[in-house]
């Protein structure tokens, strides 16, 4: 895949109040919880359906995203993308890792993630043009990943967003295992 930048969102169940994520993300920086360089935390809770609370990294961001009115965790690859063949799966894996760590946070008790739905977007209009052709190529790359991730489950992939939004697709599965199950399939 040519797109250098991509985002994967996994939706939350029993989401905590957004401000609860602020100390969590600060702790991730302090304790170097991630294997990538995290730098700062930005708080946009005040913005309607916005990016929520953001863990800013050098090459990535994690968003406690409030978009669509559906809280969830977004992993966003900004720079230093892996080789094209593994780019999407790497982002999915990192999104799942983030979910796993959040599910284990003592201060966020009750938080889980629904694993039967993923939103994948490409904020890179140069390499991922928002056209039928662009979507077609994107879909072709997503399909095998979705099949591997959901291991035999019935899946659907639908385009999301209009012609001015970034190119995006929603993957849904009839059912899915836990975050750990999915993680095992892409690790």
């Amino acid at each position: 895949m040519e797109a250098q930048k991509l985002q994967v969102k996994i939706y939350a169940q029993n989401p905590p109040a957004p401000d609860q994520l602020v100390p969590v993300f600060h702790r991730w920086i302090r304790e170097r919880v991630l294997d990538e360089q995290a730098m700062d935390v930005a708080d946009y809770e005040h913005v309607h359906h916005g990016p929520g609370v953001v863990l800013i990294g050098y090459a990535f961001d994690y968003y406690w995203d409030l978009g669509e009115g559906r809280p969830g965790l977004v992993y966003a690859r900004k720079r230093d993308a892996p080789p094209p063949a593994t780019r999407i799966v790497d982002a999915v894996r990192r999104a799942l890792v983030g979910c796993k760590v959040l599910e284990q946070e003592a201060t966020l008790s009750g938080l889980t993630f629904r694993t039967d739905e993923l939103l994948v977007r490409l904020p890179d209009r140069l390499h991922a043009p928002v056209t039928e052709l662009g979507y077609s190529a994107f879909h072709a790359e997503l399909r095998p990943l979705a099949e591997e991730l959901f291991a035999g489950e019935k899946i659907t992939i639908e385009r999301v967003g209009g012609e001015r939004d970034m190119l995006g697709a929603r993957i849904k599965a009839a059912s899915a295992g836990s975050v750990a199950d999915l993680l095992a399939r892409v690790s």
Partner: peptide, 8 residues
Amino acid sequence: AEETSDQI
């Protein structure tokens, strides 16, 4: 904002 920044 979407492609280079933090969505704001």
